[in-house]
């Protein structure tokens, strides 16, 4: 099964909601003002946000006039192009984790409570372990009850090491130990799980800064990246999450989870425009193989085509 089929399969249910609606809108109709208005509503319902949705529709209006687009099918193709372009504009064109070979890579995952950080780490660990990498997990969520236990289950599944301390311990200390261990054991990849935190809790956000500083100090040679994990059911609040998490830790990209539901994750388009943060990985199901590298064109296409 190719990557496209898999993404398409995973997003199959997504299309039942938003995709089908847009599909119905954009099938066998003539392009007129009513169509544009309905399209705007459909885009807002996909969490794309009012301003981005309006601009997308305006762009399409302009193109329809200029290119004399009369049929809805042609408009659909134009919509896919526009969304792909918006998504591709962001970031450096890289996708996936793009780990450096022969060096220690440190990936810090952060996000609000319940976004799916621990599960994402588990999946990355299994994937990279299977690719022959030496992986270590750091349980820096010392706050939530049993968070480290949850990560330990994943460590066992992926048969990799886990660095943890008691609940209520200092996450900085966990990261310190983990950096030391990763260097000593010559690991390829250290995955750091952090506690979920709402972005307006300034004390918790400064804890992230501290973790980041410890990594700087203890593993200056390591190749680092920080990823924000976003639940695709999240609405416009995700924009604020991306901005404020970005202030505390230099973010390199997003992981969009739970895309196997009916939610659309449309907010990533707006986030890309406002913060320049690209989507790196998407979660489209419960299985390990359901964590995939993000591809803008396939993402847009899988949303809008049959």
């Amino acid at each position: 099964m190719g990557i496209f089929d898999k993404l398409h399969g995973g997003l199959g249910k997504t299309r039942v909601g938003f995709g089908t609606k847009v599909l119905d809108l954009l099938t066998g109709r003539y392009v007129d003002e009513d169509l544009f208005e309905e399209l705007e509503e459909a885009l807002i319902l996909a969490d794309i946000g009012v301003s981005t949705s309006c601009e997308l529709v305006d762009t399409l209006r302009g193109r329809a006039r200029k290119e004399k687009i009369k049929e809805s099918e042609a408009l659909r193709a134009a919509l896919i192009e526009e969304i792909t372009a918006l998504l591709e504009e962001t970031g450096d064109g890289e996708t996936g984790l793009s780990l450096a070979e022969g060096k220690l890579n440190i990936v810090l995952l952060m996000g609000v409570n319940g976004a799916g950080k621990t599960t994402t780490i588990g999946k990355i660990a299994m994937r990279e372990k299977a690719a022959g990498k030496k992986v270590i997990l750091a349980a820096a969520d010392t706050f939530r009850a049993a968070a480290a236990d949850q990560l330990a289950v994943w460590a066992k599944r992926a048969s990799c090491d886990i660095i943890r301390q008691n609940e209520g311990g200092d996450p900085g200390a966990v990261v310190f130990d983990a950096c030391r261990a990763a260097i000593a054991r010559k690991a390829d990849l250290l995955l750091v799980d952090t506690a979920g935190r709402l972005q307006n809790k300034s004390n918790l956000m400064s804890e992230l800064e501290k973790i980041s500083k410890i990594i700087d100090r203890e593993a200056p040679e390591a190749v680092r990246q920080a990823l924000l994990v976003l639940d695709s059911t999240t609405g416009q609040n995700a924009v604020s999450q991306a901005k404020i998490f970005g202030e505390s830790a230099k973010l390199d990209g997003l992981v969009l989870t739970k895309l196997d539901g009916t939610a659309k994750g449309g907010v990533v388009i707006g986030i890309g425009r406002e913060t320049g943060l690209p989507v790196r990985l998407i979660g489209v199901g419960e299985g390990i193989e359901d964590l995939q590298d993000f591809n803008a064109y396939e993402f847009a296409k899988a949303l809008f085509t049959e």
């Binding site: 909601g17 319902l45 639940d231 059911t233 009916t262 907010v267």
Partner: peptide
């Protein structure tokens, strides 16, 4: 229900 949920919250 998560207070940060988007448009899909009502469908769920």
């Amino acid at each position: 229900v998560d207070a940060m949920a988007g448009q899909d919250a009502v469908n769920a």
